[in-house]
Design a protein around this nucleic acid. Structure first.
Ligand SMILES: [Mn+2]
Ligand SMILES: [Mn+2]
Ligand SMILES: [Mn+2]
Ligand SMILES: [Mn+2]
Lengths: 219, 219
DNA sequence: TTTTATTTTTAGGCTAATCTAAAAATTTAT
DNA sequence: ATAAATTTTTAGATTAGCCTAAAAATAAAA
């Protein structure tokens, strides 16, 4: 039984919703992420259920079966490895690779992706700091804290971004802020959650609360 | 106006038929290569014509417009560059890469393919000896002769294969015969077009007329 | 606890890409 | 030149994936 590209994209979206701790993914949440109507989602969710990739209880959202979760995980593996390839080997910037990886992830060949993995030196994280599952589906873990939870005086290194939309990444580029940047909290402004930070021991900048929320650091 | 993967595959097939000198591609020839019914071909050919990618005269076959030909050429460029990547970087064998390239060729990004090209060192030929069009669509040319046209005593180097089906390529692997192999014709047997050759100045083998027809050599 | 708002599902339709069977056109053979 | 064979097109259906509008179910508010 083969899985279409569309079905794969749905599996990934459902997986990403469940990953955030939700007990099940709602029709509306899926339709928002997939940019399709709620009716189309109901349609597709039924098809995924029929293929034993998802479990659907009417009006109660959808979960993934073990197999559905495995497929989603392998899609993330492929997506992230291709992103590493595009950045490390073809010199793309981290904000340019998402769309291409969105297509490349659907190429079917376990052997190819395992070889790509070793060609790239078995990276554990993608260009946005997201963990790359290994061939068995195990994610690397790492202790990381969103910048907004840091206190004044604390220091850390940027290791990931919560959101990797092009505008956000380009804004970070503008600030000269990326994975590996050293950050020290100089001041925190409670009334709007913005903060003044010392970047790479050299530049003082002010960043908004939204940016603080979207940056993951290692202490 | 965007072109579907299916439309792209049809364009490639039509291009490959026209490339062999035919003035137009017949419905049957296309249906054979596409593994679809003749009725489906008629359908698709009309759609390609409506999109100005092909010219269709009822019962008289189909040709490609300039734009149709350009798209087919870029597909060959992508297909062949990915094949080089798979063989040179991921260490696949020449008989293992076709199916993967068949999918990879549909990834849309001019920038990506141009960068891949330079990452690979701007190769002029793919792992089967087929020429790789450059970014402007120009094919490298090379004087090459099918082995069956060689006379006894003549020598040459294998530079390409007419057909790159897995069984044929694996058979060549078995014979220790690949791109770069040195060949000298020792005897030709007219009655079945087979020949005895000296391979790499060391091994005498007999090959059938079919094999002779499918090997291209440079004198 | 009704009423109202929101979410989800159903009903009915559309397009791309495919199929089989039958009709029409063209080519080949007699 | 007519008949037979082959090729191509048309007709009519099917499936995946999508849509809008309406109905049904659930959640929130009064
Ligand atoms: Mn995708
Ligand atoms: Mn990523
Ligand atoms: Mn293809
Ligand atoms: Mn090739």
């Amino acid at each position: 039984m083969k899985i279409s590209k569309t079905e794969e994209n749905y599996l990934k979206v459902i997986f990403s919703i469940l990953e955030k701790g939700k007990p099940s993914a709602s029709t509306n949440a899926i339709s928002k992420k997939m940019q399709t109507s709620a009716a189309s989602v109901t349609d597709m969710v039924k098809r995924l259920a029929k293929k034993k990739l998802a479990i659907h209880e009417s009006h109660k959202g959808v979960k993934l079966t073990k197999r559905g979760g495995q497929i989603a995980t392998m899609l993330l593996r492929k997506h992230r490895l291709w992103e590493v390839f595009l950045v490390d080997k073809l010199d793309f910037l981290w904000d340019e690779v998402h769309e291409m990886a969105e297509e490349l992830e659907h190429i079917q060949s376990k052997e190819m992706i395992d070889r790509l993995d070793s060609f790239l030196g078995n990276p554990k994280f993608d260009p946005h700091g997201d963990p790359i599952p290994d061939a068995e589906g195990n994610f690397a873990t790492r202790q990381q804290t969103p910048l907004n939870e840091f206190k004044v005086g604390e220091k850390g290194t940027v290791v990931g971004v919560r959101e990797s939309s092009t505008p956000f990444l380009q804004y970070l580029d503008q600030l000269d802020l990326g994975l590996g940047s050293k950050v020290e909290i100089l001041e925190k402004f409670e009334y709007d959650n913005s903060a003044k930070i010392l970047l790479n021991k050299s530049k003082e900048i002010v960043i908004t609360g939204k940016v603080c929320l979207n940056l993951f650091l290692q202490k």
